[in-house]
Amino acid sequence: MGLVGRRAWKTIESILLFGVGLVFVFPFLWMFITAFKTMPEVYQFPPSWWPESWQFNNFRIAWSSGPFLTYVWNSLVVALGTLILQFLIGVPAAYSFARYRFKGRNMLFGLSLIALMIPSQVIFLPVYVQLSHWGLVDTLWALILPFGASAFGIFLLRQAFMQVPDEVIEAARLDNASEWKIMWTIMVPLAKPVLVTFGLFSFIYHWNDYFWPLIMTNSDTVRTLPIGISMLKAAEGGKQWNVIMAGNMILVFPILVVFFFAQRHIINAFVYQSK
């Protein structure tokens, strides 16, 4: 029974994994196929599973529908700028929450956990009014500053820092290492898988974010890629699904690349966390 049972279980597991994988891959595949179709082929029923002739022109139409180079640049500045700011604030915050005992620590940590639970839709109006007073609406600052302190990042890093054995830090202190040095040269490298995972989550979130940039910006010069893509969609009348999907391909491509390279670290991070 043992061997047969295990083998049967393996087969079932593979089938299940394949099924789940298919569920995740299918939308991407459909987007890819649709991006290369002609409009009549998009509407065709039963649908075709492979484009009859490859319409690369869809990408050209999507790209030239607006200042896409500006959008891509803005998206990069916002996603990376946010990420850097989050690290600069998150690492010291997480280190102090994990390694120091000070008055009000639990309360402060509790406050940052509360921040984790409030979606941006709830607070956008007061933040908008505040940024408007500072004259930052319709600038890239409005897309970066409100996300500078990431509660999620602080929480994740704190957990990682807490798992570093005390001996390591004590040894460093005996060698006269400054707290600053311990934080950046010992703790941060040890938490690398967590940092990469968090970085990826943050990057994807801000790269894809539609709601916040839409609310905070009015002009094309400071807008990001998702808004450019949404402009491909007409309110009434025929939607050019093939061009919209071509635009979406442009949007997801960088994320797929980043994900591809960071995959190993992500798996590490989850294994690390569950230890």
Partner: peptide, 8 residues
Amino acid sequence: ALGGRNGE
């Protein structure tokens, strides 16, 4: 508030 060709 019109995207697509109408926006253009």
